[in-house]
Amino acid sequence: MSSTSCLAGAAVAAAPLPPWSPRQAHCRRLQAQDVDEHAQAIGSWDLRYDQLGAGRFQAGFFELRLPGLQVFAEHTRQAVRQRGSLGQGRLGAAFMRRGQGEGSCNGQAFGHGEVLAWHDAELDLRTPDGCQLAGVVLEPDLLPSQGLALPRLSQPLSGQAAAVRRLHRLVLDSLVLARRLSHRADVPGGAVGRAAQWADALAVAQWRDDLVDACVAAVHRAPTVGDPLRAQRRAALVERACARMLAQVEQQESISQVALCQALGTSVRNLAYAFQTVLGLSPLAWLRVVRLGEARRTLRRMAAGQEAPQSIYAVATRHGFWHLGRFAVEYRQQFGERPSDTLGRPARERIG
């Protein structure tokens, strides 16, 4: 079954959909208490996760997969940065159902009214504390093979556009459908004995056609939020500042925000605004969080036997913390546990 849309005067034909049956669907529910475990458990995306918000990390992930299509819902208790890509040629769309404040996508702030869209491009996404995302990812073989070429894209789309409102509604409907299908006894990973009534293969194929059509229409028709060029410059400035600070830590050099701004050719105010928009933190606060995160990764590798044992003090100084007591306090504030707790507990995945 296929659908045809008329976009900007050109016809775009969606790829023919293969026959569907419940056995081609697969659902998963994941829970994690560590940001790296969460990223590894998801598995299908090439994304690095970094915990930015303070407190014991908690996250959950639900997905339903059909041929060429992934429907997902993700919630994270702490603010998180995700960097990488969804995979070559894939088209993704998501929106924030809940969240304590704004997020940022490739340097552009976004809120609850916008839809995030990615196609064949690098992603730098920051979500706020208490964030819930709902979205879909389409494989390249479901996207139009003729007519209008899809542009490279990684920006929020304006929620005022009719195409975005339709996509927003379809993504939410898709999540409802996914949860219904996950209750079918004949869907791998589903809840045995709780079969839903949503079993019509033709209806599922039509829903998938509509979703592809809505994603393509939104990408072509909807304006992006803000000024993409300014967002790119903002993101590039933050990236340069981050790289410079990390290099100074590696060389055991002191860091002055004024000297950093002079080296980057910007003002303290501009740099602070860029960091707050992109990462939700000041430059020095971001550096502290990143160093704590790398120290945690070292401790977890040691706990798993993947790295030679060393003292907690050695781990702290390796990542730029010279006062062990202060390191322990900041570590506990950031992760909700002591460094010794992390070292004494093997890494594990929580999959439910």
Rank of each mutant, 00 (worst) to 15 (best):
C6P: 14
A8M: 07
A10Y: 14
A11E: 10
P18Q: 08
W20M: 14
A25V: 12
A32L: 08
Q33K: 08
V35E: 02
D36V: 15
F61A: 02
F62Y: 12
F62H: 13
R65Q: 11
P67I: 03
L69Q: 05
L69S: 02
Q70P: 12
H75N: 08
A79L: 08
A79I: 11
G84A: 00
G87F: 04
R90V: 04
M96R: 11
R97P: 10
Q100W: 12
Q100H: 13
G103F: 03
G103T: 10
C105S: 08
N106G: 04
H112E: 04
G113H: 12
V115E: 05
A121G: 04
A121S: 14
E122K: 15
L123R: 12
L123F: 09
D124W: 11
P128R: 10
Q132D: 12
L133E: 02
L138P: 13
L143S: 04
A149S: 11
A149V: 11
L150V: 11
P151T: 09
S158D: 09
G159P: 15
R165G: 05
R169P: 09
R180V: 05
L181P: 03
R184S: 02
D186W: 06
A191F: 02
G193F: 07
A195G: 10
A199H: 09
L202F: 02
R208G: 00
D209A: 12
A214H: 08
C215Y: 03
R221F: 04
R221A: 04
V225F: 01
L229P: 14
A235D: 13
A236V: 09
A236M: 05
V238M: 01
C242L: 06
E250I: 01
Q251R: 14
Q252W: 00
E253D: 00
S254W: 04
Q257Y: 00
Q257A: 02
L260I: 01
T266H: 01
T266Q: 00
Y273L: 11
Q276Y: 06
Q276P: 12
L281E: 09
L292F: 05
L292S: 02
E294K: 14
R296Y: 02
M302F: 04
A303W: 12
A308C: 10
A308P: 13
Y313L: 05
Y313Q: 14
Y313C: 06
V315C: 12
V315T: 14
H319K: 11
F321V: 15
H323V: 15
R326Q: 09
F327S: 09
Y331E: 01
G336S: 06
P339A: 00
P339M: 03
R345C: 10
I351G: 00
